[in-house]
Amino acid sequence: MTDRDEWPLWEVFVRAKRGLSHVHVGSLHAPDAPMAVRNARDVFTRRQEGVSIWVVPSDVVVASSPDEKDAFFDPAGDKIYRHPTFYTVPEGVEHL
């Protein structure tokens, strides 16, 4: 098969009826965006999983590098003051 007839890959995100965010549910091949959205509806919403579909060409997704995982994510690990539970609040004080 020639490369010519290879359809690009798309990542699919679906937001559920009661969801706030689109969730990544998988990927599929489609020749262009309109067909990608329609294919996503057929392939990923078989059980009324969603009210909104996003499709994104896979090759425009920019991902953080697994090799840089440490430098990227570890510094946040010892900044425990970013968690609300770090702080002490006297008993009886409300709405904090």
Partner: peptide, 11 residues
């Protein structure tokens, strides 16, 4: 002609 089309036509 393509897997996704198979699903569409079956639906």
């Amino acid at each position: 002609p393509q897997l996704e089309e198979d699903v569409a036509l079956a639906n």
